[in-house]
Design a binder for these strands. Structure first.
Lengths: 219, 219
DNA sequence: TTCTATTTGATTGTCGACAATCGATGGCTG
DNA sequence: CAGCCATCGATTGTCGACAATCAAATAGAA
């Protein structure tokens, strides 16, 4: 059933996950010939896949010189986080205004589930990976702004996740994060856009400083 | 000297300006064959150009069905403006923090020039077109955030300009806009990020409501 | 007549080969 | 020996043709 997608899209999605997972190191060159022998097909769909990756800012392509996996400097990473901080705070404010009561209830039950899985000391890794993303994702969707959703989920998140893989080994602070999440949902439930925005801003800023210290230690 | 650019890029830039200028109507189909006969070359570079246009959200491509010039609904246009409002206000805040004194001085002289050209009742159209863009562009650059610059200038502005062409005939309010610009620069010069952000937010919001009423009248 | 199934036409996706360009290796000159 | 230039190899950009897919027009049955 999933065979209706074009070959270029399949290669694109495989390459995309490979880059995000770190299987292709930042700065590594993507030779069209090599990709042909690996993924099969001809050069045309591979080129198209590479262009799609370029559109998502996962690779950089320079004419007549080929494509390389993007390699961000600390300044560029900070720039991205700065933009994400602003956009996601905005999304949270809009979500407090526009989410339906049902969506808010669903969000609450999601957090309750997270609390249980943490309390049982199970699935800590789950919460770090998917759970955290689920929470943020729902709020972004709750903003009811398609372009905002596209920019955050389509463009920024892939890059952020790509750089998280290298640094996400250190012990997260799931309990603290969960509490922050609960307060945010509370603000949304109370239909307090300004408070919701402020709490989300602080929440992301915390994770930003967290990442910065880790990157500083690494470098 | 400018012949080192690849054919695909040339077609891309020509198509890009054609779309922004409205020579290609929204929703119009872009047949690869037709583009080949018009711009020359083969289908390969044309396909690449179309994909680049898709990356900038100027066309939408559905597999096996071809590419069409993007046609935004009122909701989508509102979404875009909502995001632009937030990002450019953010840029203004950052500019107040990070612009060098020299850049601020240049911005002041630019506004003085605008004031002269308006006072002389000359170049009103110039001010509407390039002048306004120049002002916003410099502030975005002053934010010293490359990603922010890319998102605003690379992705959002083309679409916004595309829809301005159809509605920019009504008499703008250049005098009022100039005054708002001057106040913004004053805030930046005073190194007051919060005020600068607030003023820019109001400034863009005004132009947004302006556009909305015009679109409503048109539809 | 109207709805459905089919065929047809055109458009897009894919392929393999050729030409243009860039980076590297090696030789020549000072 | 250092530095510049030419040649070579490899990679990318471009081309024309073929195969797969979709949309419309046509024919047939209820």
């Amino acid at each position: 059933m999933a065979e209706s997608q074009t070959l270029a899209e399949k290669v694109f999605s495989e390459l995309s996950t490979a880059i995000v997972r770190g299987e292709l190191a930042p700065g590594e060159k993507l030779s069209e010939q090599a990709l042909v022998t690996r993924y099969g097909g001809s050069r045309a769909p591979i080129r198209e896949a590479i262009q799609k990756l370029e559109a998502r800012n996962l690779v950089v392509r320079v004419p007549h010189a080929g494509a390389r996996v993007v390699s961000l400097s600390l300044e560029e990473l900070r720039d991205i986080y700065e933009v994400r901080l602003e956009l996601e705070s905005m999304a949270c404010r809009l979500a407090a205004e526009r989410m339906t009561d049902e969506e808010v209830a669903d969000l609450e039950s999601l957090l309750a589930e997270h609390a249980r899985s943490i309390e049982a000391d199970q699935g800590l890794s789950y919460y770090q990976k998917s759970g955290n993303l689920d929470f943020h994702y729902r709020i972004i969707e709750g903003s009811k702004n398609g372009r905002l959703h596209q920019m955050l989920c389509g463009d920024l998140y892939h890059i952020i996740r790509m750089y998280r893989y290298r640094t996400s080994t250190s012990t997260e602070r799931p309990l603290l994060a969960l509490k922050e999440h609960q307060r945010i949902v509370e603000a949304i439930k109370g239909r307090d856009p300004q408070l919701a925005e402020l709490l989300m801003r602080r929440h992301i800023q915390a994770s930003l400083t967290n990442l910065e210290t880790r990157l500083a230690h690494e470098a």
